[in-house]
Design a protein around this nucleic acid. Sequence first.
DNA 1: TGCCTGATGTTCT
DNA 2: GAACATCAGGCAC
Length: 190
Amino acid sequence: MHTTLTKFLDRPASIVAPELLGCILEREINGHIMRVKIVETEAYDETDAASHSFNGRTQRNDTMYGKSGYLYVYFTYGMHYCCNVVTDKEGIGSAVLIRAVEPLEGVEYMNELRNRVGNELTNGPAKLCQALGIDRRLDGHDLSQLPFRLIVPSRDTPLRIVQTNRVGITKAKDVQWRFYIEANEYVSKP
DNA sequence: TGCCTGATGTTCT
DNA sequence: GAACATCAGGCAC
């Protein structure tokens, strides 16, 4: 694990989530390189009723309790994957859900994987997983290395970030742990 | 444009 | 057996 990345991610999810906005994800699959920018995130931790880690460590959420800088992928609604970046110290069940990304490179191959175009390509957690070819085989993957890598760019101009309540959940809806880049067309609808 | 619903597997009660 | 951090398609307006 890359030490700079560890230092960046080794903090509470609610702190890391807004700072992940604007970061780059690089995915390599079948020789294709795809690069996307994170534009929407949500924080989850064990104090949070909507989090997978709220009811303690289980086989499914084990990755969330591991070291920061790894990928937590889970399967939901019978047909969708969602991906999270594990944050905070080992033993703490916290992660940041990647809700939307903006394609930068390899858009053609994303289109091929998802059979959609435009902002419908990656403007939702399950959509971006499909576009980037992410499934449970990547659960627990080290995000400092390909085939799926997180790159934290040096920040030049501050981003315009909006903080709201989370969406698509039934518990703890009023917790303001959703963050997105203002006026970005790839941010999910609600 | 917007609500409703079906699809469908895994996890936990 | 129910809930689920979802999406896409259908149909009404």
